[in-house]
Design a protein around this nucleic acid. Structure first.
Lengths: 106, 106
DNA sequence: TGTATTGATCGGTAATTTGCGATAAACTAT
DNA sequence: ATAGTTTATCGCAAATTACCGATCAATACA
């Protein structure tokens, strides 16, 4: 992306939906979410056991999900408890649902 | 991604969902789909009028969507008519829906 | 005060993505 | 054959993403 000025190319909802989609656009992040779906919450350590990638890599993907708003992390030293952000997730679901709805049948 | 061998890290459905999500992970592609949703079908040229980006850029995003399976292009020389691939779209919707369902409430 | 634990962050490399202009390809029409 | 139309593809630069090992920060505990 090398667009500098105005930046008025897309609608808010297009940017927002794309943002959520991007958060889901890697299998490891899908898996993290699914794991959270079975656990209510989890610590980073559980994920590093579940997923055969470096701890730093997993931490980075958690950051991605957090920055997209889909999860939140509560610091419980020395650990961090991650949970799904139900509100953001509901919003994402709504947005996806509406998109698909508009695309159906045409 | 610099993983070379076995590649048995993720489940098929995780990869597939991530693949669909990636296709939706850019506002221009969301917009293209939305436009298709109002038009049933369209030619590339209509999109280059709708969207203030270079023709080559739009063509590339169409390719992205096509490679993800979400749209298909029928060549009608010298133009190409793009339509939503309803079957793939339905599959994507299903997968997203199930994911969100599993994440709800926890 | 030291030691252990947990997880974020840094620094680096490789790969991928995004954007553009220019050009090629596939036709139609003249 | 030539010219025009439409769209894909190429080649490039810049930005971003993905991954890792190493290190730092925060806290608990001995």
């Amino acid at each position: 992306m090398q667009r500098t000025a105005a930046e008025q190319v897309y609608c808010d909802h297009e940017e927002k939906l794309a943002r959520y989609a991007k958060a889901l656009a890697h299998p490891i992040r899908v898996r993290i979410l699914e794991f959270l779906g079975t656990q209510a919450c989890c610590f980073t350590g559980q994920l590093t056991e579940e997923i055969p990638l470096a701890q730093s890599t997993i931490s980075q993907h958690l950051k991605e999900l957090k920055e997209a708003g889909l999860i939140q992390g509560d610091v419980m030293p020395p650990r961090v408890k991650y949970c799904i952000n139900q509100q953001a997730m509901a919003e994402a679901e709504q947005m996806f649902f509406h998109l698909f709805q508009r695309l159906r049948h045409t």
